[in-house]
Design a protein around this nucleic acid. Structure first.
Lengths: 333, 333
DNA sequence: TTGTACGCGTTATCAC
DNA sequence: GTGATAACGCGTACAA
């Protein structure tokens, strides 16, 4: 049985208006009716219908986060950070995972943006995000996180400085004397891949090392994919002495492949990962990572969304600086 | 600018009723008006207001998952599995994380259950879940997952057979000759702890080993907490030769502590974890786990919720059997 | 201090 | 085939 204000009002012998005022504290009400109503609210544990409230008030105090590359531990941390920030700011956060599936993503976004939420943080899937155009025109508040789409310049975004990340990791490996450096990436069309690859190329170029397309292998963001990719890479190119792996889960896959092939890191193959999965430190030798605290990403992203909600013209493109967390897998000690 | 059916209707020179029928295909409409309306829908990329629809139809085809121990990798996998199952069943799934914070959890549940969703899957926090009583009385569909609350017998739940899990892990260690077995648990009041401890005690008892309260240490579900707990445990009780760690993240902490103390596993300390974090296999030596595929948990939980939605009297208490994934940290090889 | 009346955007019923 | 009209549950200007 669904209790509504009408029911409360009837039983209390007052109008719905009065009930509404009591519940929202929006006007002075006599002590007597106040307690009468509150006791009924208690008795039936009445809770206002959120849908009706939102419909009436034209906002919901809810934001949403739609992410496609879940559950990567790095993304998971971002999800957590965004959630906490949202709570601190008085928002409820809904989270939807779309498994790199363009269709699911579109459905989720459509559902959420049909007046259900006040704003959206989106980590888009690999393919084109043109379906966002109508939302952009409608000025629906959206912020891209982690990945961005250069075609959607009208949207603010918060990402890592992936160019720098690619450059730093590569540069560090070159510093250890490596000249044949393999890359395991997840998907070719996302900026977390393309930008880091640009950085990789730049670092090579500055050191006079020729770029070789064959050193780039797709790991599909999964453990198995990366393991396969690593094996393929090392079998085909025995001259490779270092690998830069662009995500946490893939790093696990690469390590697993190295173990299978009885290769030691960093001596046989030097290793740098991207991200910061919790097991990094207890793997032996521990893994050096290019990293950006997911906390920072999440908080910044939510704040950007708030800005966009309050000001439809807010359109900053934020690239947060990454840093190298040096452990041992790169050859340092 | 928010476009509504009224706007479309006005510009098309028809009534809202007609627009509604066109959009929902709920009646025959003349070719002419049909195309006229559809082109306007296209032009303004009109999308119906979900809130209004839900308000009117009294259901939403949305379910929610509220979880408190995020981001544990095991929970993360459950989250993913529930999401996939929901999608397969034609539901949208909202996810909210509450960080073991009772107040946040209650707020989230209240928000969601105030007519926004059709059903809820909940992994409750440690403290009492009495605030659920009103929802239970109202027959709001709720299923508990991972953890349950023995006082809430009226709710269905889907968990691991935690007693068996505790028994199996302990029994296996005893089989390797260990008699002084430490336990790192996350929180004392949850069934994932209490039930496993019961299993632990039973295994000890059957082997004639006295139970010692001092061997139980709280790790707070975190890496740091478990590291501290492990150090404390091993310093205070040098006779301990094996540790059973009850969650993925804490296993990482325990390993980190062992490394700090220069203890080797399984030789100095045998190790069994609970869960199945992805790095288990690449840690050296790899970690033996008591485990239950999170996929199974997630899918079962969502199906249970569907049952509960369709039949308010559905009230199965499902305990899924766990299994021992033997690697090397326990002493096997 | 309390109540009346209307509207938020939709869908369902029933007429024409 | 199309259109009034009411209703979903709530908030609020306005009146009493």
């Amino acid at each position: 049985m669904k209790i509504t204000m009408k029911d409360i009002a009837k039983e209390a012998g007052v109008s719905v208006t009065t009930v509404s005022h009591v519940i929202n504290g929006t006007k002075r009400i006599s002590e007597e009716t106040y307690t009468k109503i509150m006791s009924l609210v208690e008795k039936y544990s009445y809770v206002p219908n959120t849908m009706a409230q939102n419909l009436r008030q034209q906002n919901s105090n809810m934001a949403a986060l739609v992410v496609s590359s879940f559950p990567d531990s790095y993304i998971t941390s971002i999800v957590k950070a965004v959630g906490e920030r949202a709570r601190d700011r008085g928002y409820h956060l809904l989270f939807i995972n779309t498994n790199e599936n363009q269709k699911d993503e579109q459905e989720a976004v459509t559902l959420l943006t049909s007046r259900m939420i006040d704003g959206l943080i989106l980590s888009p899937t690999t393919r084109d995000a043109n379906y966002l155009q109508p939302l952009i025109e409608r000025k629906f508040p959206i912020v891209l996180v982690n990945r961005y789409d250069p075609k959607l310049i009208e949207l603010p975004w918060v990402t890592a400085d992936d160019f720098q990340a690619g450059y730093d990791g590569t540069y560090h490996l070159i510093g250890h004397g490596h000249r044949n450096i393999g890359i395991i990436y997840n998907f070719p069309e996302v900026t977390t891949t393309t930008d880091r690859l640009e950085g990789y190329k730049e670092a090579l170029k500055q050191s006079g090392i020729p770029f070789r397309e064959e050193y780039l292998v797709q790991g599909y963001g999964s453990i198995e994919g990366a393991a396969l990719a690593t094996e393929k890479l090392l079998t085909a190119h025995k001259e490779i002495t270092a690998i830069f792996v662009l995500s946490d889960r893939m790093t696990i896959g690469t390590i697993s492949a190295l173990k299978n092939m009885s290769k030691k890191w960093p001596n046989d193959i030097a290793l740098i990962g991207y991200g910061d999965f919790e097991a990094s430190t207890i793997i032996d030798p521990p893994i050096t990572n290019v990293s950006l605290p997911p906390d920072t990403v999440g908080k910044t992203a939510f704040d950007a969304l708030l800005n966009r909600i309050q000001n439809p013209n807010y359109n900053k493109h934020i690239q947060l600086p990454t840093s190298l967390v040096i452990r041992k897998s790169c050859g340092c000690n």
